[in-house]
């Protein structure tokens, strides 16, 4: 039962990593750089949830969804603004310039968020309920009591074997369903809408995309909106399973999601989803083992191993063009 429990936990954590990893990979797809500020958009999503949840959430499932959608709208807007202000003026510059700018944006957001006057202050804050919560516990193997007499003639003593249980919190189910729904919607947008096809076109060849009349800047804005909305949703879902949130909460999940994106093959959307799930499962299982203190180290060891042996990632391909 231990295994089933860990599997469930791992999948929900992995789904959250997948949501964040998709943002990294989509932005990489159209602009070829790693948006390090993405993890802070994730954090801002959690704070947007903190603000919206007491007003709408907590009581009904619909209210919870309203919080989620509201926070996604907030982070989508922030993502578009970040791109416009920080990255667009650098269009055509070297990737390194944009990459360093992204680190700068990330530090700026973190510092403003930590400031008590401008932001939320440095102290952790309790995260309110977003969805109505309930925990279901199943006794898979019921508890048993055996009467055992140690030596013949003495009074038998009761020996109790505890029940084996599987407990599922509705929050976990919500995390799972919401992330799967978001992943499915993203898949649909990217593969079956005009703007999604344009995203793939820009990502393959921005010049050719401009030559058919695609305004690259508009597609890039849309990509940031989409990626940031997913990160915002990820922030709320992540915070739901932890008691508190703070301005630096994005760093570690952000880095792990980045590892997930590289593991799946940077720029590859199904790869990012798969990478997220794998990293989430791996982390949960390692945490449940006696090597639990190494769980973060293992995530980054994976990054090093991929870069050494399979730089294109699990699903990524090194591109070969026909001439």
């Amino acid at each position: 039962m231990e295994f089933a429990q860990q599997l469930l936990n791992g999948i929900s954590l992995g789904a959250i990593y997948a949501l964040i990893a998709l943002g990294y990979t989509m932005v990489y797809g159209v602009l070829r750089f790693i948006n390090f500020a993405h993890s802070d958009v994730f954090m801002l999503g959690a704070y947007a949830g903190l603000t919206l949840a007491p007003r709408f959430g907590g009581d009904t499932f619909a209210g919870g969804l309203a919080v989620l959608v509201g926070a996604m709208a907030v982070t989508a807007t922030l993502g578009v603004i970040i791109e416009k202000v920080a990255y667009r003026p650098l269009r055509g510059r070297s990737t390194l310039t944009v990459l360093i700018t992204a680190i700068g944006v990330s530090l700026l957001i973190q510092n403003v968020a930590q400031n008590s006057k401008l932001g939320f202050g440095p102290n952790p804050k309790a995260f309110p309920a977003v969805f109505p919560q309930k925990t279901f516990t199943w006794e898979v193997v019921p508890a048993t009591t055996n009467l055992v007499a140690k030596t013949p003639g003495t009074e038998p003593t009761a020996q109790i074997t505890p029940a084996k249980t599987l407990s599922v919190n509705t929050n976990q189910v919500a995390v799972l369903f919401v992330s799967l729904a978001l992943l499915a919607s993203l898949h649909w947008i990217v593969n079956h809408t005009k703007i999604g096809t344009a995203m793939r076109a820009v990502s393959f060849n921005a010049t050719a995309a401009a030559l058919v009349g695609i305004n690259n800047d508009r597609v890039i804005s849309f990509t940031f909106a989409l990626g940031s909305a997913l990160a915002g949703a990820g922030g709320i879902l992540y915070a739901m399973n932890y008691p508190t949130i703070d301005p630096l909460m994005g760093t570690l999940p952000g880095l792990k999601a980045f590892v997930a994106a590289v593991l799946g093959g940077i720029g590859n959307l199904p790869g990012a989803a798969l990478g997220g799930l794998l990293i989430g499962l791996m982390e949960t299982f390692v945490k449940g083992s006696r090597w639990s203190t190494y769980s973060d180290a293992i995530a980054f060891a994976i990054l090093i191993l991929i870069l050494l042996f399979r730089p294109a990632g699990l699903l990524g391909k090194l591109r070969v063009e026909k001439v």
């Binding site: 096809t197 344009a198 076109a201 393959f204 060849n205 010049t207 050719a208 058919v212 009349g213 026909k322």
Partner: peptide, 26 residues
């Protein structure tokens, strides 16, 4: 005014049909 560029630059990751639809993007 359309431009069919040097090296063709078709979207290799899109289907033939999607390539044509992108041609009519506007």
């Amino acid at each position: 005014l359309a431009h069919s560029p040097e090296g063709r630059m078709v979207f290799a990751n899109l289907t033939v049909r999607e390539n044509l639809q992108m041609g009519a993007y506007l």
